[in-house]
Structures are given as structure tokens and as C-alpha cells.
């Protein structure tokens, strides 16, 4: 839910700004993102390429590449992430955080057998006999003894993702950040892997940050949805409610452009234009150029989050839109 009690929040991101600076240009990935997440919540962070969701995930572990500069406040389990010493951030990553990446095969060392990788991941503890097999059984890998002897290139993407999950969940992390962990997988495997992550997270009592562009999976598995656009949070509320009745024009357009939800014969309402790339702070609302409801102030004044129906929404015209829709204002595509 939006704006929960600050003291109860396990993750606090306050006005985070992240720039990727290269000699030739600067790209702004986060443009003042603000987010509070209480312990144990399962949060789906939804956004397209350039929305800043991956950067947000990396920021929590201060895992940004060296060319990134970050400002703002980031608090994870009571530690100010951006101010920690290298040793302290390493400790935080080890004790509190776990990450699962999209490219599971790529996250494994290609020269080591699975068994060896798993025992290295458990250092400094030595795996007890049978412990590795138990780890693989937990992520429902059949014939674990055989799999432990294989190299990463000998296993499927789904299997690699399960192994990455086994490694991530082994320490029962307080916070799990999963960045599009199923995007590269087949539909059916995708569902199994998603279920696995959420079940293991529930057993371990972990907070889950599920970064995804898949609204439907988020609606199914997450308590709360955070929709990002242009490096800011544009809508934030109970997942099922937001997807059933989106309020922000971007969320609404996104939900409407899913072909799976369309009745037969209906035409897909597409959003014109393409997601933007920011080079500095957005002058107004980042979605304004693509928004069917955009007014003058939208492109000149930065919107501040407002609370409607216990959701945080970042839109100047949030209260006028229902009337505009009723008046038969334009849909996204015909402009």
C-alpha cells in the first residue's frame, strides 16, 4: 500500500536520482523515484525499457556500474546504502539481499560444474554431505546428483534459473530482488519458476521485489504493484486493484494494450510513440508526450504524487480524467 508508516518500512527509497555518465552523454535512469516497502511484502515493479526498474533493483544493493552516479536516500533494512563503506555494503548484500537476474546461464561461471558453483556460493560454510542435493531438490530439479556434475552450458535456461534461485534463496535473504527472471523462459516453465520463487520467498519470509513488464504475472503473484515510467513511480497500489482499474493514463494504456485481455474482434488501443530516454530531469510529466490527456502544465510542471483510493498516483489531471473519459475523449491511438 502506498505511504505506509515510515518506521515499518524495510526498504526506503527517497527521491533517488541515478545518472549513467559516459564521456559523450548522460542518461538519467531514475528521476526522483520514491518508494517505501514494508518487510514481507511482495511488490511487482512494472515498466518498459528505460523505465528505470532495473536501475532501482541494482540501487538497493549499490550494484550500479561504476559510470553511474546516485543521489537521494536509499535505506535497506536500516542501513543507508549509499553511505556504507565497501565492507559494510558487502556485509549487507551477503546478509540481507539476494538477486536473481534474467540471464541465469550468464550468471553462472561457465568453467565450473554446477556442484562446485553451489559450494562456492555457500562459502565460508562447507556444504554438508547431501546438502547440495537437498538444495536442488528444493527448487524441484529432478535427478539432482546428475545435475551437480553438469556444466552450465549443458542445462536448459529453466534449469539454470532454478539453480540461480537455489543459490539466491539458500541464505533465506530478507530481501529478494528478481529482475525479469522469467523473461527468457517458455510460457509453461515461466509459470513454474515464478511459483517457485514466490513459494520459497514465503517460506523464508523474504520481501520480494519482482521487476517485470508482465502485468498479468504481477497481478497473480504480487500484493502490490509499482508502475514506473521515465525513472519515476507513476502509480503504486494493491496489484489486483490497480490492474483491474488503473488510474494513471500510462497504467491504463499499458493494461489496455495487452492482447490477452482483449475480447475477440476488438481492436488493440496502442499508445503512440515509444518510451523515452531522459538526459536530465524531466521538465514535466515524462509520459506527457504520449498521453492522450496531456494538458499544458503536464509538459512544464513536474507532477507530485497524490493519494487516490489509497494509491499513490503521479498525474496532474488525475481528478479530471474520469470526466474526460466519460466525455468520450480520445483513446491513445487516434491522435
Amino acid at each position: 500500500m502506498s505511504a505506509p508508516n515510515a518506521s515499518a518500512a524495510q526498504i526506503v527509497v527517497e527521491n533517488a536520482v541515478v545518472d549513467y555518465v559516459t564521456p559523450s552523454r548522460t542518461v538519467r535512469a531514475l528521476d526522483g523515484a520514491t518508494l517505501r516497502i514494508p518487510a514481507g511484502q511482495r511488490v511487482g515493479v512494472v515498466g518498459e525499457s528505460g523505465s528505470g526498474k532495473s536501475t532501482l533493483g541494482l540501487l538497493l544493493g549499490r550494484l550500479l556500474p561504476s559510470l553511474a552516479t546516485a543521489t537521494g536516500a536509499v535505506d535497506v533494512a536500516g542501513s543507508p546504502v549509499l553511505e556504507l563503506t565497501p565492507a559494510a555494503i558487502a556485509r549487507l548484500r551477503r546478509s540481507e539481499l539476494a538477486f536473481i537476474a534474467q540471464d541465469a546461464v550468464g550468471s553462472l561461471n561457465p568453467t565450473l560444474r554446477i556442484g562446485r558453483q553451489l559450494s562456492l556460493a555457500m562459502r565460508p560454510a562447507k556444504p554438508a554431505p547431501g546438502e547440495l542435493v537437498a538444495m536442488l531438490e528444493r527448487v524441484r530439479i529432478r535427478d539432482p546428483e546428475r545435475v551437480l556434475r553438469l556444466f552450465p552450458h549443458e542445462i536448459s535456461g529453466g534449469m539454470a534459473q532454478r539453480i540461480a534461485i537455489a543459490m539466491a534463496m539458500h541464505r533465506a535473504p530478507r530481501i529478494l530482488v528478481a529482475d525479469e527472471p522469467t523473461a527468457a523462459l517458455d510460457t509453461q516453465v515461466r509459470d513454474e519458476v515464478t511459483r517457485l520463487v514466490f513459494e520459497l520467498a514465503r517460506e523464508a519470509g523474504s520481501t520480494v521485489l519482482w521487476l517485470s513488464h508482465d502485468l498479468i504475472a504481477v497481478a497473480k503473484w504480487c500484493d502490490r504493484i509499482v508502475v514506473m515510467y521515465g525513472g519515476r513511480v507513476v502509480e503504486d497500489g494493491v496489484a489486483a486493484e490497480v490492474i483491474a482499474r488503473p488510474r494513471h493514463p500510462y497504467t491504463a494504456a499499458l493494461a489496455a494494450s495487452l492482447p490477452a485481455r482483449l475480447a475477440p474482434g476488438e481492436r488493440l488501443p496502442a499508445i503512440t510513440g515509444s518510451p523515452l530516454v531522459l538526459t536530465g530531469p524531466a521538465a514535466g510529466c515524462a509520459f506527457a508526450p504520449r498521453c492522450p490527456f496531456a494538458a499544458e502544465q503536464c509538459s512544464t510542471v513536474r507532477p507530485e504524487p497524490v493519494i487516490r483510493e489509497s494509491r499513490g498516483i503521479l498525474c496532474h489531471r488525475i481528478d479530471e480524467i474520469p470526466a474526460l473519459v466519460a466525455a468520450g475523449a480520445t483513446s491513445g491511438e487516434t491522435s
Binding site: 518498459e48 499499458l254 495487452l258 488501443p269 496502442a270 515509444s274
Partner: peptide
């Protein structure tokens, strides 16, 4: 493609 762009191309 991004979800919002996917719809344009499908149409």
C-alpha cells in the same frame, strides 16, 4: 518490443 510498442506493430 516493449508492451506499448508491441500493440502498434500488431495493429
Amino acid at each position: 518490443l516493449d508492451v506499448s510498442v508491441q500493440a502498434q506493430v500488431l495493429n
